[in-house]
Amino acid sequence: MQPLIQTENPTPVGATTLDRLALHQAGRILALGLEGAERRRLLDLGFVPGARIEVELENPLGNPRAFRVLGGVVALRTEQAARITIALENPAS
């Protein structure tokens, strides 16, 4: 059986923020730079540190974008995505 989320991170190539990921690029969530209700909302939606995340869709105007995380696809505006720190996935893996 293979876990949906590997608990050990693959070697991060570098840390960046979610808004800078290109379409279809993937990474792993490191931290959420948000407070209070907004932070709670993102945690609820599956934006948890350690989870794998991939940029799935971009709307016709480029913002918001939708991300595949924990089996779901969730749309966020760029301003929100900019608060989420990401470790880029090792391209080799």
Binding site: M1, Q2, P3, L4, I5, T7, R39, R40, L43, V48, P49
Partner: peptide, 24 residues
């Protein structure tokens, strides 16, 4: 502090999921 609880829930959910879901 409340985050700690949320993390505990997710850690547990992750553990259980890895045990019961075959995601070939």
């Amino acid at each position: 502090l409340a985050d700690d609880a949320m993390e505990a829930y997710y850690a547990e959910a992750n553990k259980i999921t890895s045990e019961v879901v075959d995601a070939q």
